[in-house]
Write a protein that binds this DNA or RNA. Structure first.
Lengths: 196, 196
DNA sequence: TAACAATGTAAGCAACGCATACAATGTGGT
DNA sequence: ACCACATTGTATGCGTTGCTTACATTGTTA
């Protein structure tokens, strides 16, 4: 029977992992620093060393979410085919997969955005996501598969489609099958809209 | 100096009004039943007569939001022109106006949806919204301004666009002007996608 | 006018976030 | 090897919260 060491070892990441679990299962409102501390086997005040406030923990969680999402999207673009259609489909599908697989986290990520005192890192993370979309459009234009025009304006419909698709997927009311149809339809629709 | 009457008179709607105020200014997390009771000048336990839990109050708020939104959209469609393009533009713009004018409320409305125990009234309210979109598509098809096809599949891109547009508007990062451009671009994009 | 439902109050519980003061542990400079 | 010091944990307590139970007041209606 070994006594628990005075120092946890890696409380910070332990808290983040635990927090994501309860976030996923019970939502951000149910998240309690004290409960997290209990689960980690540590005193109620211990988490404050790593996260000054509860909001700080949520921000850290959101930031991690953005990193995971952009990583997934980067990977998808890297292994997708060359045509605009293929890349678009890949992007949409991995974005949607992340969204449906991390509902609560995504809510947190975007919910935090329109708060005046969101971390600078957070807004930077969302910027990188936006760039991903414009890059895709740009490459499509170079290949002559997307009608010409200023990228920052051309990319809006794409972002609209991505956001809208996930929003629709998250608000539910769709069977797995309807959703898959919807994705295909929307991709086709978007392609038609971008056609030269 | 008249004594405050034992009964408030209309505590329920007073609570709803007050709640929407603090929701708008400080978000749903900052909402406190006790504080609401204080502002309404009643005892801390009084609100429980009308809203068993805090969540019940939020649900009521969300429901009210859906009613206001659908009313606004109905009005918009009623006074819009006859062509599909006009009706689409009207719908998009009033939807967006509501979204930007009631950020927190809209978050509440859609945030509550993917909770297993959301009110039946709530899901019904979202259904009516969906119908609005399909009606628009259908009328467009009758006029020969929208390519034919099964309505429930054809309407998906429209809903995607509406949801995406508001999502984008809410997450910010756009000036008023960019947003307006984005709306126009997206409307044009959608029209092109639906063109026969 | 007496029974009854609706609506309010009073009081108290357990849990929460957070601040402050203190204890144990690791670390780097001499 | 030692010792100042930052880091990371604990102990304790304050004020607030949501919610429950028991009781008081009022409006309605039979």
């Amino acid at each position: 029977m070994k006594a628990r060491p005075y120092h946890h070892g890696d409380l910070r990441s332990a808290l983040l992992t635990l927090a994501e679990g309860t976030l996923r299962e019970r939502g951000p409102a149910e998240l309690s620093l004290r409960e997290l501390a209990r689960e980690a086997g540590v005193s109620p005040a211990a988490p404050s060393r790593h996260f000054k406030t509860k909001q700080a923990l949520l921000d850290a969680l959101a930031l991690e979410g953005f990193q995971r999402l952009t990583a997934a999207l980067d990977a998808s673009l890297a292994q997708a085919g060359d045509t605009f259609a293929q890349r678009l489909a890949g992007l949409a599908r991995t974005y949607l997969a992340f969204a449906t697989g991390n509902t609560a986290l995504l809510d947190l990520m975007y919910g935090r955005k329109h708060d005046p005192d969101a971390t600078a890192e957070l807004v930077a993370a969302t910027e990188r996501l936006k760039n991903l979309a414009t890059d895709l459009i740009e490459s499509g234009q170079r290949r002559g598969e997307v009608r010409p025009g200023p990228v920052d304006r051309q990319s809006v419909p794409l972002m609209v489609a991505l956001q809208g698709l996930t929003a629709l997927a998250l608000t539910g009311g769709f069977t797995e099958e309807q959703l898959d149809e919807g994705v295909s339809d929307t991709i086709a629709f978007v392609l038609r809209g971008y056609a030269p």
